[in-house]
Amino acid sequence: MTRPMVSYKNVRKSFGQIEVLKGVNLEIGEGEKVALIGPSGSGKTTLIRMLMTLEQPTSGVIEVDGTPLWHMEVNKKLVPANEKHLRNVRKNIGMVFQHFNLFPHMTVLENCTVAPIHVLGLSKKEARERAVEMLEKVKLGDKLDVYPSQLSGGQKQRVAMARALVMRPKVMLFDEVTSALDPELVGEVLEVIRELAHEGKMTMILVTHEMEFARDVADRIVFLDNGYIVEEGPPEQIFEYSSNERLKRFLSRFRLHSVYPLTTRSV
C-alpha cells in the first residue's frame, strides 16, 4: 500500500447508551477508493462523519495524512484538539451529503465561490475561474446564475460536488449521495463520481447502497455490520468469494431488491 492518508485506530462512538461503532481499525492509502457498505445502522455514515469533524469519536484516534484529527500534541501528549487545529486538518477533507445541503440563498456560482473566497482567501476572479471549471466538469456550466431551488435533485448533487471539489481536498467523502434522488437521476451523479475516480489522484471514501457501482469504482470494499468491520477486501473477493454468512445474507437481500441495474457504466 502507498502511504496511509486516513487511519482509524480503535475508534469507538456512542450516542447516549447506544454504541454505534465498537472499535474500528481501518487504514486508507493515498489515492485509494474505498466503498463502505452495510445495513442501516451499521455505523458507516458515522464513520465518515467523524472524519469530517461533524461527530466526535468517543474514544480512539483518527489520523489524516499522519496528523491526529481530534487530538493535538502538546508536550508530547495527545490532548483534545481546539478549533484551530480542527480547521487546519479539516482543510484536507471535503464531503458530499445525502441531502445536498446547498445554500439556498446563493446562486450555483456563489455556492461554489463562497468558501474559496472566504476560507482559502482567493480573489473573486480566481474563485470564479475555479468554480466555472468545476461546474463545467459536472456539466452545469450553463446554470451559474440559477438558484438551487430551480434545479433537479441530480443537478443539485452535482453542484454540491463541484462546491466540494473547488476546495481541492485530498480526501473526498460521499455520504449516500444518491439515496435522496429519483431513480432516473441517479445515473448522472454516479457518472461524475466515476470520472473523478478514474482520474485517480484523489482519495475517496463512499458510503453507498449501490452495490454495482461500488464494485465498479472502488479498489476495496469494507463491510460493516453492527458497529464492527466484518469483512474487507477487493470487490471481487467481497462480492464473489466471501464465505462470511452475514455478508452473504446482506448481499443476497440486495440483489433481490436492487433497483438500479448498471446502466451507466462507461467504456
Binding site: 469530517m52 461533524l54 477533507i93 471535503g94 464531503m95 445541503n101 445554500f103 463562497v114 468558501a115
Partner: peptide
Amino acid sequence: DRGQHEAAIALNMT
C-alpha cells in the same frame, strides 16, 4: 437546517 451547518463545516468555514 442542520445540514447547512454541516455543509459549512465541510467547507472549513470558521
